[in-house]
Design a protein around this nucleic acid. Sequence first.
DNA 1: CTGAAAGCGCTTACAG
DNA 2: CTGAAAGCGCTTACAG
Lengths: 366, 366
Amino acid sequence: MAMSQGESPSPQLKVTVLEVARLAGVSMATVSNVLNRPNVVAAATKSRVLAAMQQLNFVPNSAARQLAAGRSRAIGLVVLDLTNPFFLEVARGVEDVASSAGYVVILFNSADSRDRETRSLSVLREQRVSGVLLSPVAARTELVEQMRAEGTRVVLLDRRGAATGECSVSVDDVLGGQAAGEHLIATGRRSLAFVRGGRHVRQYNDRERGIRSALRGAGLDDRSLVVLHEEMSVSGGEHAGERILREFANVDAVVCGNDTIAAGVERALLKAAVRVPDDVALVGYDDVPLAKLITVPLTSMQQPMYEMGRSAAQLLLDEIEDSDHVHKRVSFNPSLVARSSSVGRPAKPARRSGGAAKAIATHANG
Amino acid sequence: MAMSQGESPSPQLKVTVLEVARLAGVSMATVSNVLNRPNVVAAATKSRVLAAMQQLNFVPNSAARQLAAGRSRAIGLVVLDLTNPFFLEVARGVEDVASSAGYVVILFNSADSRDRETRSLSVLREQRVSGVLLSPVAARTELVEQMRAEGTRVVLLDRRGAATGECSVSVDDVLGGQAAGEHLIATGRRSLAFVRGGRHVRQYNDRERGIRSALRGAGLDDRSLVVLHEEMSVSGGEHAGERILREFANVDAVVCGNDTIAAGVERALLKAAVRVPDDVALVGYDDVPLAKLITVPLTSMQQPMYEMGRSAAQLLLDEIEDSDHVHKRVSFNPSLVARSSSVGRPAKPARRSGGAAKAIATHANG
DNA sequence: CTGAAAGCGCTTACAG
DNA sequence: CTGAAAGCGCTTACAG
């Protein structure tokens, strides 16, 4: 039984360039020109063509355009975890830049799986996108090199590129770890824990290095840092918090790999009646909206996510469109947002009594 | 100055069906057949063609396929707010179903702007997607009817469709409001507030009706409900909380339009030393991860987001591929997840002493 | 500034 | 089960 749609669907099923050309009394080439190089066609002709397009409700077929032109007005964006507000903001930045340059962005979530990443890249390859923005699961993917060899531009996201041969935009994680460490040391902490994810993840390795560097800078040695590897989730954080209380009772400050895990740590501490920040200070990472909403609002490292997205998209478009393009590695600086979890209750007088750390931005905390 | 790429990029720039055909010693039609109707070609031929594809590293050009075949293996998904975990989960469900059926999903965020919605739909139209999943900004869009007339299938998301003529998947908001109301009444509340967004948004209107219906069912009249219209943000919630304390001191329970605004309300209450839930009970909506992480974990209405996405994608694919398709309106039921904000501290004994409301699911709370 | 012609890389009936 | 041919809707040099 077919759909009872009643009348026949409107007849304007497929209006082609040819029909527009006929109605406007010009050639197909001219119609194509008003679409692609409007400045090349006479004003009168142009308006005639435009009117015909309007009247016929003409919608160019992008598959045909792409096939004929040999290039695609699309770029791909493959992110590690769309669930993470970080990448969502990055995606917004990418989208804004791309769409105002007339590009469509095709978004994929690799969800940290090499397999999904491969499939995503394959689809983008079949789509013949002119470029892709990739926050890669692993260090080097053959597929990426393959695509580059085929002429597809690839810009790395959230990962510093090789010394040469590619663009990348990332944020300096060593600096981030160091700022977190210095902040805690400056506020009197002496025995830190770092709760982090996967051992092979560059981000966490860099931040750990940054923390160690801060400790050394303050004359503290490596024994003043304990490192816990946990799943990056609330329950991972709770587990870490419990372990710290049980096994490392002298720890007086915890840096976390992200805000979600920090929320878990905080939960475990509060449940055990440990005071935050009085007994243990807490610093998260990413400064997601959640950070300011949990029981003790979280000090966190903020990254210019939206700007990173914009910047990456600009780099990619430049590489696609400018034959004089030279590769660049853009590295953004994170900044610490101090809240109650590390600097005491945000009572008005307390805030007035001086900043926590020197060059560090202290944002108001909701 | 050109890029110092060194060697010439690999030569396998563009391998076409023709070359595969030559290497395999068959016609282009046969190559096309192993791609599109593998069961129609002899096993020996097929493996010869497959081998040739492998050897040449052949990647079909989807623009060409689409143009020649006259149909696209892509669907569009336009959501109201990608920042909202609700739509992110829906998108996951859509993506999973679509990609395992061999479709690419092109995702757009209309960000609640008619203008952005229009632009997104226009791009999808130029892409000649075979279908789109849309959570519409406004009630009826001409563009949508236009696209339908052109043969594009459209399934409505998070909005109940017209009585006939289209598929839709939504969640029953009247039921949701009612369940929230009944839960609060069952736990002894008698004077409710509903903090909601835009007056024209169907979701909030439905939920308000549900709450009123619950009140009536308990013999309470409309004066037992005050309704506040606020911006759907943390600060909107704080504002609402302050107003309630100032202007409606007798309110003993608040239902919120989403969890974020509920977090704001809770914040305002706690700041004023009002106890939650002892003095005022609180119910959020959506059950986002945040809900269980704020100071007093939030009772919230959970919606089967991922399942909604899957279901919507299935409906759309069915409409695209099955000529016997009949339109359906799928309506999911929300379920209440009870946490401390409405049922007292989650101490073990308390939980054991009986459920809060009859048929309502009471999930463990982190 | 405009037009005639060829072709982008594939698929689809149609024969065989 | 396989092949020859036409064509999908556009754009791009090339003339004029």
